[in-house]
């Protein structure tokens, strides 16, 4: 894969009380980051079922970063449930031949601008290296094939 290749799109699911204002703080500091990053505001990412992530990759999204509030989540217990769900999504990704590093669960606070930029940069390197998810996916998940 050429390093100059245009990186695929990265979706960020950012919590409205922590990571989304954190991303805005990056904007207020006028710190640039790659434009292939698209941020969607969520109340709590615990909302999304496992299939949502897989379908995002099927739609052509190359990488997803869940930027949660971590253990500081205002919804008591939601982060722990989310973390367990993401483990299951990793499992599903592996079965489908999708590199699990395309999905990352992290915690970003309202002023965590450096952490935000680091996460974005790392995911950008990953999706640039891996290319689009379609190239990687096996058509039939191995579990279902057997």
């Amino acid at each position: 894969m050429l390093a100059t290749q245009k990186a695929g799109k990265i979706l960020i699911l950012a919590t409205e009380s922590c990571a989304y204002p954190g991303a805005n703080a990056v904007g207020q500091a006028h710190s640039s980051y790659p434009e292939n990053v698209f941020i969607l505001r969520t109340r709590a990412p615990v909302l999304f079922p496992e299939r949502f992530y897989i379908e995002c990759f099927e739609k052509g999204i190359s990488g997803i970063i869940i930027m949660s509030c971590g253990v500081e989540c205002p919804y008591h217990g939601a982060y722990e449930v989310l973390a367990r769900r993401i483990d299951r999504v990793f499992e599903m990704m592996r079965k489908r031949g999708l590199d699990p590093t395309r999905l990352r669960l992290t915690a970003i606070c309202t002023v965590c601008t450096r952490a935000f930029l680091k996460e974005v940069q790392q995911m950008n390197e990953i999706v640039t290296k891996l290319g689009p998810p379609a190239a990687e996916r096996t058509d039939t998940p191995p579990a279902e094939a057997s």
Binding site: T42, R43, V46, L47, P49, E55, Y75, A78
Partner: peptide, 24 residues
């Protein structure tokens, strides 16, 4: 918070104003 949305096998629960189909 939506913890209920993710687990419904019938996709019968949603958060008003923040539905899964809107995200999709």
């Amino acid at each position: 918070c939506g913890a209920c949305v993710a687990v419904c096998p019938e996709n019968a629960v949603d958060i008003r104003g923040w539905t899964i189909s809107q995200y999709e």
